[in-house]
Amino acid sequence: MILEPLPPKVLSVRRIPNADPAVLLAYGADPARHRSLGLVTCDQDDPTYVALDEATKHARVDVVFAKSFWAGSKHASGKLSGEILGVLAGSDPDEVDEGLAAFLRCIEHDACFFAANDDASIAVFPHVISSLGRYLSAEAGLEPGQSMAYLVAPPIEGTVALDAALKGADVRAVKIFPPPSPTNFAAAWLTGSLDACEAAAVAYAEAVVAVARGPIERLPGRR
């Protein structure tokens, strides 16, 4: 079944209420402002980035660390590793709790990969962020509150689909991540009005499905 949601699996959620300053510094937090950490691992990295950004909209937390692991969750270092470690930092445990609750809400109900073919061996992430939080807006160089299409697919699908998305809607590319990403995907961030971002995401997903259905194009003059 195509375009069926592939729900991300949260593999671990842990809190460090009063983190050691050395740990705070090593993971990019500022001991002057941050004291508590919330750590999550998940088997899908891009929904996690989106959900971490969502957390910054609901609590005074900063995403101090978020990195994907090489080659993705199928090659994880352990069963709790997944393909990403995300770290929220806040001034106190209550803030971190609130941030984690928003994170889990988003990852359970919103951000997810979709199957691009029937056996889900190709996945696409055509996500629309209607209003950016403080984390992704800073990463993208946009303002918090702007809309962004967060598009991810495997290398060939992602490349063809990115072109389709840019042509199919009134959006501009903010950042393009050609393959291979740490998890061997291709990604792009596009911005425009919310409608335009939605149209871009739909065009992107449609193109990924099209490539998945016909990966080898017949060339002119060959039979």
Binding site: L3, P5, D110, C112, V128, A201, A205
Partner: peptide
């Protein structure tokens, strides 16, 4: 409800 999921259901 998730806007992205609604869009993908429509596209589907």
């Amino acid at each position: 409800p998730s806007r992205t999921r609604t869009l993908m259901a429509e596209l589907r």
